[in-house]
Amino acid sequence: MAPTATANESPAPVDADFSMNDAADFDQPIERDENDPANRGWLQGAHSIKTLPGSSETAASFQFVKEDHTLGNALRYIIMKNPDVEFCGYSIPHPSEELMNIRIQTYEGTALDALEKGLSDLIALCDEVSAKYVGAREAFQSQVAAV
């Protein structure tokens, strides 16, 4: 087949192969705009999570690579806001290792669920803060312009 023939063929309709379940496929990496500075940190190194040994369903420790107090404390706060969580704490085992451990013990549900809920609550919180900030900035700008 001549190469021109394949080039003229319209590409297969991609949407047909996708269902709602595929959209939430966990193995799929999130498409990230490389030029967005908010994503840069992520493109630089592997930020992986693992479950530490000795963890059970309702009491687990997770290790984050290349994270520190910035995420540790914020995540600890938001996970502690979950009523199913009995205990949540974080630590940085050694200052010269870029590791952060977070410990979660739950009354109900698994520790992993609590971690995931914490992350999605944090995302919701950030969206809300963003919206509030943009709103206040616009209000301030129109107030300054009016004077």
């Binding site: 966990f26 930020h47 914020a74 999605s120």
Partner: peptide, 18 residues
């Protein structure tokens, strides 16, 4: 704020893969 949000989002994908 965007950076923290994107970080949480990327970690969430990893947590789901655990």
């Amino acid at each position: 704020v965007a950076l923290l949000r994107n970080k949480a989002e990327a970690l969430q994908a990893q947590v789901r893969a655990l």
